[in-house]
Structure formats: C-alpha cells, structure tokens
C-alpha cells in the first residue's frame, strides 16, 4: 500500500485530500502542521508528503528543510501546495527541497496524477 502524509492546517483540505487519495487506493495519514508531520515521519515511513505552506507552529518550508537535512527519510518525495501560483512560491518550495509545486485550489485529477507520479505508483 502506498502511504501519503497530508500536511495542512485546514481540516477541510485534509479531509478532501484523504477522500480523493483513499478512493484511488492510497493509504492516507494527516498532520496539522510541520511539526506534527515530523512526529509522524519519526514513526512511519511514507511514500509521499503533500505539504501546505502556511501553518501554525511550523510552516511547510521549514518542515521540508528539516526533512531534507534531518531525515529519517531525507529522500522522501515532497509535493508542496501553495495558495498562490506566483513564481516566488514555486522557487521557495523547490529550494526548501520539494520535488514539485502545485497551486491551490488543486483540481482532483491533477492532484491524483501528480501523486501517482511522485509516489512511484506509475514507475
């Protein structure tokens, strides 16, 4: 089973992503901010992280930077989701260590195809 960790402080977003991904056969866990994501990662290996940017206690960029430097799986694929499609967001996401950047709102089919691609389901 391919495991995805959805990291977002908005519960509606977490629920939405969970439903879409579970219907597509993924196993989904949730975290409400970057810190909780790190707690989950310490516990469970994931095939993909889907990470929001603006979250309390720890933002998405800081979270991804910590994943990339501190592990436990520094190579885990990361998709970052930002509210604006501005170039600055994309650059910040990629320089923090994300593999891919998407702008909100995310269309279901786009989300699924990206997640399938990045989590290795297609490979």
């Amino acid at each position: 089973m391919t495991r995805v960790l959805v990291v977002d402080d908005a519960q509606t977003v977490r629920l939405y992503h969970r439903e879409l991904l579970e219907q597509d056969g993924f196993d989904v866990d949730e975290a409400v901010n970057g810190l909780e994501a790190l707690e989950r990662l310490a516990d469970t290996p994931y095939d993909l992280l889907l990470v929001d940017v603006n979250m309390p206690r720890m933002d998405g960029y800081t979270c991804v930077r910590r994943v990339r430097t501190d592990g436990p799986d520094i190579g885990v694929p990361v998709i970052m989701v930002t509210t604006e499609g501005a170039a600055g967001d994309r650059e910040q996401a990629l320089s923090a260590g994300a593999n891919l950047h998407m702008a909100k709102p995310v269309q279901p089919e786009v989300l699924l195809s990206r997640v399938r691609l990045m989590s290795g389901v297609l490979s």
Partner: peptide, 13 residues
C-alpha cells in the same frame, strides 16, 4: 504532543 505547542524541539522516536 509538542507539535501543538512549540517548534523548539524535534521529535525523537
């Protein structure tokens, strides 16, 4: 859970 409190610490499993 520290994740709702502060970013100062990192989790150690």
């Amino acid at each position: 859970f520290m994740s709702r409190i502060s970013s100062l610490f990192k989790p150690a499993r």
